[in-house]
């Protein structure tokens, strides 16, 4: 299990304080309120800043523990491993990048999927982990999600997908990544025809090809507070019109206002909110 890495160095620079034997990982700085807080108190608060309610990014494995009933999660499709179909090389080869990311995150890919229980309700649960190559969707992410959607269709279970992706469709697998948008959306079309309930949860960040496919297709779409959500990245949007973007642009609150997010839910309440929606829809 990996923790959110505290930015001790910038804390030292900002405060001018020397390290003085403080063990690394003990403190972390909240990017929102800039308070220096105990890492443990953040962890115990479901990775939410105890001072200002800022929602830190949560590693996928921790998410599973936070959302699903204790030890109820059965992970599927762990046999799926990424390949390098294009032989893609930028500043370093994609094959090498994959190995580095796997080592760094302890994940084999940016998606975890399986079956679990939430407050006693059985469901199919999947997430994209924004830690692994920006949570971008390549062939493995698309395949795992599609298999999860197909399983939910077969088993007649509610489907919960929690999205976190700053990367959208993964460039390193070229057109094949783009096609995963079509594949997952087509699987959701079938799931919907079969009468399945799909709750999509948007977390910080959910962008690009992930936002423009499965993440946007929930029967109910929930978002964590202040998450960055959108199609084009804010820098691209700004460059397009060459004007300053309004504060709060592309946040959960912005999308709620414009009608694309159904509810903003504090991380502490996600479990109970999801369970309640499942009950309404007869899951």
């Amino acid at each position: 299990m990996s923790r959110v890495k505290p930015d001790v160095e910038s804390w030292q620079q900002k405060t001018g304080m020397a390290k003085r034997g403080v063990p690394e990982g003990l403190w972390t700085q909240c990017p929102e309120c800039k308070a220096t807080v105990f890492q443990r108190s953040v962890d115990e608060n479901q990775n939410v800043c105890p001072e200002c309610d800022y929602h830190f990014t949560v590693p996928g494995s921790v998410r599973v523990q936070q959302l699903l009933d204790t030890d109820s999660f059965e992970e599927w499709f762990t046999e799926l491993q990424p390949a390098d179909p294009l032989g893609f090389v930028d500043k370093k080869p994609y094959a090498e990048r994959l190995k580095t990311e796997q080592k760094r995150t302890g994940l084999s890919e940016a998606c975890i999927a399986g079956k679990g229980y939430m407050r006693g309700r059985p469901l199919v649960f999947a997430l994209t982990d924004s830690n692994f190559i920006m949570g971008s969707m390549g062939s493995v992410v698309g395949e795992k999600l599609t298999r999860a959607i197909e399983a939910a269709t077969r088993m007649k279970l509610p489907l919960i997908i929690l999205s976190g992706s700053g990367g959208g469709a993964r460039m390193h697998e070229g057109i094949l990544s783009l096609m995963q948008m079509g594949k997952t959306s087509a699987a959701l079309a079938r799931f919907r025809e079969a009468g399945g309930l799909y709750i999509s949860i948007l977390t910080n960040p959910t962008m690009g090809g992930v936002a423009a496919s499965f993440a946007a297709l929930g029967d109910v779409i929930l978002a964590e507070p202040k998450a960055l959500i959108g199609f084009a990245g804010p820098r691209v949007v700004q460059a397009t019109v060459n004007e300053k973007l309004p504060p709060g642009f592309q946040t959960s609150e912005f999308l709620l206002k414009y009608g694309f997010v159904d509810r903003i839910v504090h991380r502490h309440n996600l479990r109970s909110e999801i369970a309640r929606i499942i009950d309404y829809c007869g899951g």
């Binding site: 959306s185 936002a211 423009a212 199609f231 949007v237």
Partner: peptide, 18 residues
């Protein structure tokens, strides 16, 4: 552009795929 984001670019593309 910002207007496309306000009007749900990601949502409309996703719905079209589906």
């Amino acid at each position: 552009g910002p207007d496309a984001e306000e009007r749900g670019q990601a949502w409309l593309i996703a719905e079209s795929l589906r």
